[in-house]
Structures are given as structure tokens and as C-alpha cells.
């Protein structure tokens, strides 16, 4: 009996470890912990983009309404993919979308890009040195944050948002958050 244990115990240990590794292999190590969900939006004050009416974009602007904050850059290929969907949201006036124009080398690059492809944003701020992006925990563009009336981040999406994500997650969540009181 004891002798058999010598073979069974290592086998069991191996099987438990193999199980852990097998599950680990199915997980995406690039998926980061989401630190911001449930937290108030970080303090930030960004200058406006050239040629836009707004005077900039700051954290206080996010209080009072359910909004999307979209991180984009004219250099970002996936943002180009996402862009038509943001335009569609804007045309149907479904939710205000604000922008953090992230890491433009040239101050006119972002505004030119918006002029060329259309401007879906209500407010837009210029973030050349990642000041706001880092405080939002952004790792790549596009990233989108759903902010409630109190200015608390309720949902974060890495990568382009699309019709499917809108239908399954964003639309119902926005409807829910709109029912919440703003104080």
C-alpha cells in the first residue's frame, strides 16, 4: 500500500499542475487587470484640438451625463476600423462620445484626420505626452471607457468597438446607467 503511494502522489501532483497549465494556456496574458472600473475618472486637463470649437477636455466634463471616452490617434490603424461605427453612433445621437487624441507627433495630425474621416466627438483633448492616457491605464489605441453620471468608470473596452459590442454590452449598460441618479 505504502509503496503504491510513492507512485500515486507524484502522479497526482503532476496532474494538478498539468491542469493548472492547461487552463493557463487558454488565458490571454495580454489581457490586463482592469484597475479603473468602479473608480472615478482620473484627474486630467487636456488642451483642445486645433480648429475645434471646444476649449479642451477635462475630468469635470464627465460629470452629469452617461458618456463614452474614446482614446484614438491618427497613427492608429484599428481606430480607422472603429471610426465608421463611432460616426454612426454620433448620427443617431445615441450617446455623447468624448476623445483623448493620444500621442500625436504633430499638433495638426489629429484634427486633419477628423476633418478627413469625420468628427464623431463632442469634446476632444490633445494628449501628446500620455498624461491622461497613463492615468486611464491605456496600453494601446483604441480604448473606450463608459463613464456614468457621477463620473465613475463603469466599463472598459480594449480594441475597436462595433455593432456587436454595442448590442450585447454598451446599449443595455447605457440604458441602465441613465436610470441612475446623478448625485
Amino acid at each position: 500500500m505504502n509503496k503504491r503511494l510513492f507512485f500515486i502522489v507524484p502522479l497526482l501532483v503532476f496532474m494538478v499542475m498539468a491542469g493548472y497549465f492547461a487552463v493557463g494556456l487558454t488565458k490571454d496574458p495580454r489581457k490586463l487587470q482592469n484597475m479603473l472600473t468602479g473608480q472615478p475618472v482620473p484627474e486630467f486637463t487636456l488642451a483642445g484640438l486645433q480648429g475645434r470649437d471646444d476649449t479642451g477636455f477635462k475630468s469635470a466634463d464627465l460629470i452629469g451625463d452617461v458618456t463614452l471616452v474614446n482614446v484614438f490617434g491618427s497613427w492608429c490603424v484599428a481606430c480607422r476600423v472603429e471610426h465608421p461605427f463611432l460616426m454612426a453612433l454620433k448620427q443617431k445621437n445615441l450617446v455623447p462620445i468624448h476623445a483623448i487624441d493620444w500621442r500625436e507627433d504633430d499638433r495638426s495630425a489629429g484634427p486633419l484626420w477628423l476633418k478627413k474621416h469625420g468628427d464623431p466627438y463632442t469634446l476632444a483633448g490633445d494628449d501628446p505626452k500620455s498624461k491622461a492616457a497613463i492615468s486611464f491605464g491605456v496600453t494601446g489605441a483604441p480604448e473606450t471607457f463608459l463613464v456614468d453620471k457621477k463620473g465613475i468608470v463603469r466599463f472598459k473596452h480594449i480594441g475597436p468597438i462595433n455593432q456587436q459590442l454595442w448590442q450585447t454590452t454598451l446599449k443595455p449598460l447605457i440604458a441602465l446607467l441613465r436610470k441612475e441618479s446623478s448625485s
Binding site: 495580454r30 500620455s130 492616457a133 497613463i134 496600453t139
Partner: peptide, 22 residues
């Protein structure tokens, strides 16, 4: 956060640069 297995001290990525400055 871009290259993931390098430290920001070693990385040439622009986000790493901004983090170093921060």
C-alpha cells in the same frame, strides 16, 4: 505594456518613454 517582456528602462516603445518621463 506594449512589448510586455521588457522593462520600460529597456524599451524603445513610446508608451515606455512616457512612463519613464512620468
Amino acid at each position: 505594456l506594449v512589448c510586455q517582456n521588457q522593462s520600460i528602462d529597456d524599451s524603445d516603445a513610446s508608451l515606455a518613454k512616457d512612463l519613464r518621463v512620468l
